[in-house]
Design a protein around this nucleic acid. Structure first.
Length: 413
DNA sequence: TCTGGGGTCCTAGGACCC
DNA sequence: TCTGGGGTCCTAGGACCC
């Protein structure tokens, strides 16, 4: 009988490591990836057009202290992390902590290229791979030949080596009885490490960890747990299930109890269909609906065109169209409307999203605007056929009044 | 000079159907 | 006249993840 063995594989400082392949002269230095859309390094590359990329002098690269604009860090190299700089940190805050770090923009094309490459390398060795974003996957080792040897360590080592040979990139792997523990285990030996855990290790290796290490406990839950004097995973495990349910709700409370005890039977899912696609953008400066009407209108249309192009390229149509606003105080408003047929048409999206815009307050400065299309189906599926003429709208079919514009809004578009 | 962009899932109320 | 329960869809917001 085979033991369930699930691996979580996490590429080490992925976005930064991909850049270091191009600029190996930056190895060992504090480098952060992130920030604005300006291709900072293109300027550098132009200036040294006569040199191969790996010979561009280190001193030529832009520094974090000279960075202007909005944005967050996507990835920091390990030397940069020593200064306290990390993912999702604002660029300005990072510049204070580590002013002399080199800053490079994200090159999504390059990142996606290496993402495909490392994932296909894994799939050749172990076919059951679940995508968890560009730089992470779960792998079911259970029935892979050799997947049980040393609890999965042998196979993990094989995969690590194959990825390094194909890409020059390192990763960290945790192998455990389930996804939940594997995810935590992959952090134990970073970078380029392997960690193998069994059910019996939960008490010694998992319980001492802070609650936040559980994938699914975020900042809000952490605060609430702290107020209840629960700080470690073991603290949660020590509570009665019913008590957790009373405090966190039937579903979340029960899940939390299971998670703290290392129980998780979610399968590794190799295929999934997208639920929604969206495009959003944070402006260089906060915009006002009246004063910046033209600029806002242009951005809005562009977002609709981009979402429509994404849908077509990937072969999907959707019927719920929505907008997202972030105000200058970071408050978020969303509105959406379900139409009577599936679409990937930019004009339809733009028109429906425009209706949504009429239903939000626009007297406050905006920081971000987004457009989303949900309720997706494949463009070639039977449901995707256009609705016959004269078909009632979904809203009308359900007797819901078409949402009316509210007082005090501007008919912007 | 805080705080990007692309997602998923859950909750909760109202409307409506059977 | 009074009174149901289960189920689905729509919408808005929020937590969380990479």
């Amino acid at each position: 009988m085979s033991l369930r063995r699930i691996a979580h594989l996490d590429m080490d400082a992925f976005f930064a490591s991909v850049e270091l392949l191009r600029y190996p002269q930056l190895k060992g230095l504090a480098v952060v990836i992130g920030g604005g859309r300006r291709k900072v390094d293109e300027i550098v590359r132009e200036r040294y057009a006569d040199l191969p990329l790996h010979e561009i002098p280190v001193a030529a690269f832009p520094l974090l202290k000279d960075y202007v604009g909005r944005g967050v860090i996507t990835t920091a190299t390990y030397p940069a992390r020593q200064f306290g700089v990390g993912s999702a940190m604002g660029m300005m805050k990072a510049a204070k902590l580590c002013p002399h770090a080199i800053v490079l923009p994200v090159d999504f094309e390059e990142v996606r290229k290496y993402s495909r490459l490392f994932k296909s390398t894994i799939a050749e060795i172990a076919p059951l791979v679940e995508d968890r974003g560009v730089d992470e996957v779960y792998i079911d080792f259970t029935d892979v030949p050799g997947g049980q040897r040393e609890g999965g360590r042998v196979l993990a080592r094989l995969i690590q080596r194959a990825i390094f040979e194909k890409t020059g990139l390192t990763c960290s792997i945790g192998v455990a009885p389930n996804k939940l523990i594997a995810k935590m285990a992959s952090e134990f030996n970073k970078p380029n490490g392997i960690s193998v855990l069994y059910d019996a290790d939960v008490q010694a290796k998992i319980w001492p960890l802070p609650v936040r290490k559980i994938n699914g406990i975020g900042p809000k839950a952490e605060i609430k747990l702290a107020r209840l004097h629960l700080h470690t995973i073991g603290d949660i495990a020590g509570q009665e299930r019913e008590w957790l349910i009373d405090n966190f709700g039937k579903s979340y409370g029960a899940w939390m109890h299971d998670a703290a005890w290392g129980r998780d039977d979610r399968p590794v899912v190799t295929e999934s269909e997208p639920v929604s696609m969206s495009r959003e953008t944070t402006f260089d400066r906060d915009l006002h609906a009246v004063r910046d009407r033209a600029e806002l209108g242009g951005i809005f249309t562009e977002l609709c065109v981009q979402v429509a192009a994404d849908l077509r390229r990937k072969g999907y149509v959707g019927k719920t169209i929505g907008i997202k606003l972030r105000y200058d105080d970071f408050k978020i408003a969303t509105r959406d409307q379900t139409i009577d047929h599936f679409t990937a048409d930019a004009k339809t999206i733009r028109q429906t999203a425009g209706q949504c815009l009429k239903r939000v307050q626009l007297d406050q400065r905006l920081r971000l605007l987004g457009v989303r299309v949900g309720k997706l189906v494949r463009a070639d599926s039977p449901e995707a056929r256009p609705a016959p003429a004269g078909e009632v709208t979904a809203a009308a079919a359900h007797g819901v009044a078409e949402p009316a514009p509210i007082e005090g809004t501007l008919d912007l578009f």
